[in-house]
Nucleic acid binder design. Structure first.
Length: 752
DNA sequence: AACGGACGGGG
DNA sequence: GTGTACGTCCGTT
């Protein structure tokens, strides 16, 4: 009873899964923290709902009614007789009724949460990964499943033959392996987007029941915005549920992490594993579209590949999984829902509902806002070109800090629950950040703390999003409060910029809560830090301006598009101008080579890099792969043939020229322009795996020299006077008089 | 070129 | 019994 309501008050330890139904039966699986033993409790609970008007609830269903206090519209807490079809009442609309899913009714009513007194490493976690002959479950088959059991042992199951019977047998063996290992949690990368839907479709087609939950029923479904389209009727999107186990998709965690830190441009398993340093150096890599082909000639290689996948997923889940795990200890929802839910409606709303019920207070109904438009943040670009001695300062969690500092909360939150929640989560985040800083860079421990901090930041920052969302989405939406937050935010940013400028720095770019600026040549790092702390002292309480980094130089191209050169020579590229999945690899390589030279005022070096690349292209010393670009197919074969006479498109010409007449929309391929003016195809290898095919080198060199100049070198133009830029990109086949000039050339920085 | 909507991934 | 943050890419005007 001592725990605050945003924490849950029931101390029952070790809950690892909950499954409940409208009949008022809840199955609670707990892992006893002392022994690690699994127990199942079968308990009764009283299903409940909250109604605006009692008349909306059929009299025959009502067991007990309690009137809640306060001004909220949803004020009748009704306990109904078990088995009442209360889900049907949702049709009344959110402004008249609140009916939670049965597990959440149970968790809210009891004050229980998952994982109390249980550490993440006590969970029994299992990973499995399908290998299939292709991406389409209507046509393709599962031929292999890699499995990693909770003890860490990896095994590979394989179809013993090519037909239906062999595939059905493989699926049955997978189900048996899961039942034998009895995991609390099943994990994989894109589990909900690929493995489970593929498996469900194949199982259905082959007449196999996927009863790998902890009660003997097949897979269940739940509606999910980010799910896959259901096979049956309608545009309904769903995810799968295995009662008694939690199905965790590491892609969800990666997206959350990427969103909150902004430094994970690629979300695929191999790239992410490399980023977190969990990929082995001898990791087997095979381009996705060649896996089955390789299997037929070299099955051992595919076994190594698939095993590496589950090993990496397991490590990744450890590094990133701490965040959702922590949320599950707080919020009255299933762990798997907290792992994929949005922060506002997925985490904050359940916490607020529980807090209000616990306090015996009526809940406000969802309510459309008045016509007040929402106003956003500020974005300023002060200068473009090359700047030296650059400092980045930013305010951590500006919006929640403003909410806390000025006590800006939703008008209808008469309990003040949202602000109290933000206060607590900010404290937790600061603790996690401190722990991250205290642990060794690159260590798994540090990643765990950073993931935790990122999750808290996500929830905390979405407290503002919660205010700003339309009233049809969140219960306490309040556009006036949201506008007050952004207005204060613009005020703070303006004050920061003004105060910095007064202290003699050159402003470069400022955005919402952070600012880049350049300092005079004579300044030391201590001077930089002093200026930041002087300005920090001028800001409102709780708004903490931090020294976020210092760089040798910055190439400012457009708002949110820039390059930073660290004092250690490291290069950071931001924005679509400098990093795009479509960019030809040779162009990326050129920018990575040229920008550091540009930023140390070695303009002759930039010219040299340009000449080198242009010459290599003309001599076809650049591999065909490096001039290709990755595109996504959007036309069907039939659709393209219809328009082909009026309009030729490179990707489809490349497919046809290579003899392919069938493809699927959404497929990604790598194409290049051939000297003959048509399209060529290169084996895709987004994971850095190069197919060892012979390299035709029949690309249109002149075309790619133009691409080098117009698409890539152009990104450097802001930093050079026009005549210097022209000299840099002059055609190397016509040696000119300009080159000597470049030794003296200097980069420029121009106010916008 | 500017805007709105879909998607992020898996074999 | 659904609804996210952001950044990128595509298709449409």
């Amino acid at each position: 009873m001592d725990l605050p309501a945003d924490e849950g008050w029931d101390p029952t330890p070790g809950i690892v899964s909950v499954w409940a139904d409208t009949a008022g039966r809840a199955l609670v699986w707990r892992r006893l923290p002392q022994t690690g033993r699994l127990v199942r409790e079968d308990v009764r609970f009283s299903p409940w709902l909250i109604a605006r008007r009692l008349e909306d609830v059929p009299q025959a269903w009502i067991d007990d009614v309690r009137e809640l206090e306060g001004p909220g519209a949803l004020r009748h807490l009704v306990h109904v007789k078990p088995g009442s079809r209360i889900a049907a009442l949702r049709d009344l609309g959110k402004d008249r009724i609140l009916v939670l899913p049965p597990e959440e009714q149970y968790l809210v009513a009891t004050g229980r949460t998952y994982f109390r007194d249980l550490s993440f490493d006590r969970l029994r976690r299992m990973q499995f990964d399908l290998e299939t002959t292709g991406l389409d479950p209507l046509r393709d088959r599962i031929f292999m499943v890699a499995v990693r059991d909770p003890s860490g042992a990896t095994s590979v199951l394989e179809a013993r033959g090519a037909g239906d019977a062999a595939e059905a047998d493989l699926i049955r063996r997978l189900v048996s392996a899961i039942l034998a290992a009895d995991p609390d949690v099943i994990e994989n990368h894109n589990l909900h987007g690929f493995d489970l839907p593929f498996l469900a479709r194949r199982a259905r087609r082959l007449g196999v029941t996927l009863a790998f939950g902890r009660i003997p029923v097949g897979l269940r479904q739940r509606a999910a915005r980010r799910g896959v389209l259901a096979d049956d009727e309608g545009p309904q999107r769903i995810r799968f549920v295995a009662p008694g186990r939690e199905l965790i998709d590491t892609l969800d965690a990666v997206m959350r992490y990427g969103f909150s830190t902004g430094d994970l441009p690629w979300r695929g398993l191999k790239a992410v594993a490399r980023h977190f340093g969990v990929a082995g150096t001898d990791r087997e890599l095979i381009p996705g579209d060649r896996i089955y082909e390789v299997y037929r000639s070299d099955p051992a290689r595919v076994r190594r590949y698939a095993s590496a996948d589950v090993e990496e997923v397991a490590r990744l889940a450890e590094i990133l999984g701490g965040a959702a795990f922590a949320l599950a200890r707080m919020a009255p929802r299933r762990y798997e829902r907290l792992a994929d839910a949005g922060a506002a409606t997925g985490v904050i709303d359940p916490l607020l509902v529980r807090a209000y019920l616990r306090a015996g207070r009526a809940l406000p109904a969802h309510q459309d806002g008045d016509r007040e438009p929402h106003t956003g943040a500020a974005l300023h670009l002060f200068a473009t070109g090359a700047a030296h001695r650059v400092v980045k300062a930013d305010v951590a969690s500006l919006y929640p800090s403003l909410m806390r500092s000025y006590r800006i909360g939703p008008a209808r939150d008469t309990l003040g629950a949202l602000l109290r929640l933000v206060d607590r989560l900010v404290e937790r985040r600061l603790a996690a950040k401190a722990s991250a800083k205290a642990s060794r860079p690159g260590s798994a421990e540090r990643f765990t703390h950073e993931a935790m901090s990122a999750a808290m930041k996500l929830v905390v920052n979405s407290a503002y999003g919660y205010l700003a969302a339309g009233g049809s989405l969140t219960r306490f939406a309040d556009v006036h409060a949201a506008n007050e937050v952004t207005r204060r935010g613009r005020e703070v940013l303006d004050l920061m910029c003004r105060s910095l400028a007064e202290r003699g720095v050159t402003l470069l770019e400022a955005d919402t809560d952070g600012v880049y600026f350049a300092v005079p040549a004579a300044w030391s790092e201590a001077d930089e830090r002093r200026v930041v702390s002087e300005v920090a002292a001028l800001l409102p309480p709780l708004v903490q301006l931090e020294f976020d980094g210092r760089y040798q130089a910055m190439l400012s191209h457009e708002p949110k598009n820039y390059a930073l050169l660290g004092y250690d020579g490291s290069l950071v590229l931001r924005g679509v101008a400098f990093r795009s999945s479509r960019a030809e690899p040779f162009g990326d390589a050129f920018l990575r080579c040229a920008i550091p030279r540009l930023l140390v005022n070695d303009v002759a070096g930039v010219r040299e890099a340009y000449v080198k690349m242009a010459t290599a292209l003309r001599r076809r010393e650049v591999a065909t792969y490096d001039v290709s670009s990755r595109v996504r197919l959007t036309r069907t074969p039939e659709g393209y043939l219809k328009i082909r006479d009026s309009r030729r498109e490179l990707p489809y010409e490349a497919l046809l020229a290579s003899g392919r007449t069938s493809w699927t929309v959404g497929e990604r391929i790598r194409v290049y322009r051939t000297a003959a003016g048509s399209g060529g195809l290169v084996a895709d290898s987004e994971d850095g795996v190069r197919a060892d095919d012979t390299d035709p080198r029949d690309y249109d060199a002149d075309h790619y020299v133009s691409v080098l100049r117009d698409n890539f070198a152009e990104r450097l133009s802001r930093a050079l006077a026009p005549e210097d830029f022209n000299a840099v990109v002059a055609d190397p086949d016509q040696p000119s008089l300009f080159e000597p000039l470049l030794a003296e050339a200097r980069t420029i920085l121009a106010p916008v």
